[in-house]
């Protein structure tokens, strides 16, 4: 099976590692080869969390610059920052609700314009799916389900060698029982948003 390489970037606390885990568990359920790696620096202290997931026949657990087939960004500036992982055939999915870094919040540096972020990514990659995943997560009943909203959008692209059912099953069995309903709603909203 040809390798499929996925990068997920987020700010610490946005649930990147859980999203990766759900995809990994879905691959395990579906018997699809998967390996992943994560770098979380000082995630609890506001840093960036990057996960790499490699599905199919490859042994590496990391993804070189220009070699991601799909990039999912939980925060628009972080999506833009990870553009070095992309090539002209990459599909990019991003949340558009910003979480400005502290230096921006106190006026010491400038956050790029959202329209500029979107047009740059659109120009340089195969396809950009951009929407307010934070709003969808709130609609699903829990802002913390933003990660699952984006998994819904990711599944809609049909780029992963995973069925939507397998991912839903992983959400049902591998996320906290108290949040399963909200998570499944979030997944469906994300799935619709990426139409």
């Amino acid at each position: 099976m040809k390798p499929m390489r996925l990068i997920i970037v987020a700010v610490g606390g946005q649930g990147n590692l859980l999203a990766s885990k759900v995809l990994g568990e879905a691959a395990l359920l579906a018997d699809i080869p998967v390996r992943m790696s994560e770098i979380h620096g000082m995630a609890q202290r506001g840093g960036v969390v990057e996960s790499a997931l490699v599905f199919g026949d490859a042994q590496s657990t990391i993804i070189s610059d220009g070699e991601a087939d799909v990039l999912v960004g939980f925060e628009p500036a972080e999506t833009l920052r990870a553009l070095n992982k992309c090539n002209a055939r990459t599909t990019v999915i991003t949340n558009v609700a910003p979480l400005p870094p502290f230096t921006v919040a106190i006026g010491k540096s400038h956050y790029p314009e959202l329209d500029q972020i979107k047009s740059l990514i659109t120009a340089k990659t195969h396809r950009l799916i951009a929407f307010d995943a934070a709003a969808q997560a709130k609609e699903a009943g829990n802002l913390m389900s933003l990660n699952i909203v984006l998994l819904g959008a990711l599944c809609r692209t049909e780029l992963l060698p995973l069925t939507t059912d397998a991912v839903r099953e992983a959400i049902r069995t591998r996320t906290k029982q108290a949040f399963v309903e909200a998570n499944l709603r979030a997944f469906d909203l994300g799935y619709q948003a990426a139409a």
């Binding site: 700010v11 620096g41 000082m42 609890q44 202290r45 506001g46 840093g47 960036v48 070189s64 610059d65 220009g66 070699e67 500036a77 972080e78 833009l80 920052r81 553009l83 070095n84 992309c86 090539n87 002209a88 400005p100 870094p101 502290f102 230096t103 921006v104 540096s109 400038h110 956050y111 790029p112 500029q116 740059l120 340089k124 990659t125």
Partner: peptide, 20 residues
């Protein structure tokens, strides 16, 4: 790998870890 050209990407504010 055909890395995308990043020349026109504006400076993205860093997100260094900070004391909580």
């Amino acid at each position: 790998p055909a890395v995308v050209d990043l020349d026109d990407v504006p400076e993205i504010p860093a997100r260094p870890p900070t004391l909580c």
